[in-house]
Simulated scan of single mutants.
Amino acid sequence: MVELSVVGILAGLDQVALADVERHINRKTFSAGAQIIEPESDSSDVYLILSGKVRIVNYSLSGREITLEEIGAGGCVGQLSAIDGEPRSACVLAVTNTDVAIVSPANFEKIVKNHPSVAWSVIRELARIVRTSTRRIVDVSTLGANERVVAEILRCSQIEIAEDGSAMLSPVPVHSEIASRVSTSRETVARVMGTLARNGLIAKVELGLYVPNVQRLEEFLSESIH
């Protein structure tokens, strides 16, 4: 059984406190592709991701799926509705087989009130969500589709950057997933990836997508914008 200690917002708790949290949860496994949270639903449970990965998506008026974020083991989803009681603002899907700990809104409130470190971690997570959303709004408002694709590759590279300034994205990002994250088409993603490859800024290798110099990619994006 996966321990609750893998969950980021619970990281500061000792074994006694984790045992207290354990009494307030139900465990469940979702198969890959299953819908965990339905958009606009009235449910308010919080889902702590113990293993696997989930994708948070929304839909445009035309029905296009827009990926907001992917969250792996240690993350949590659903806390906004648990806090304000409003309907779900997005859909959450299991990308892989995913084990979760489900916390009712009442129990989530108890946990937050009983363990101040959890409350602070939840606040920090909400701040991260706001910052991520703000960056997306700025990108969509100020960057063209091509630049948004480059910016997404750059963001992923900055997370995986090595000491020599290179980055390895493994596995190779799927074009349709990048398109969903930056609100464009797969054809646009393929065209931009081709341009980056011809300029020596990325290369497909056995291990994944190799970015030899993340700073050069950042400079390429800056020059494209200006």
Rank of each mutant, 00 (worst) to 15 (best):
P105K: 06
V95K: 01
V54A: 02
E109A: 15
V150S: 06
T184K: 00
S176D: 14
L196G: 01
V150C: 05
I102L: 09
L61H: 15
R55M: 07
R128H: 12
G165Q: 07
I129K: 15
S62A: 14
E69F: 09
G194R: 09
N146G: 02
P87Q: 11
T195W: 05
T96Y: 13
E86N: 14
V77P: 03
E65S: 10
R124W: 12
I153M: 13
P171Y: 08
I71R: 00
I102S: 02
S166V: 04
E69W: 10
T188N: 08
R55V: 09
G63Y: 10
V140L: 15
P87E: 11
W120G: 11
S60W: 12
S81H: 08
T184W: 05
S104N: 08
S117M: 09
I102T: 03
I66E: 00
L93F: 15
C76K: 09
A127K: 15
V112C: 06
T142V: 14
L93Q: 09
N97E: 15
E69V: 00
R55P: 04
G85D: 09
E147F: 11
R136K: 15
R64I: 05
M193G: 11
L68D: 07
R64M: 10
L169C: 05
E147C: 04
S170H: 03
A106H: 14
S157C: 12
G85K: 07
T188R: 10
R131Y: 14
T98G: 06
S185I: 00
E163S: 15
S157W: 07
Q79M: 13
N97K: 15
V122Y: 04
L126S: 04
E69L: 12
S170K: 09
S157L: 08
G72T: 04
V130M: 09
T132R: 11
I161C: 03
A90W: 00
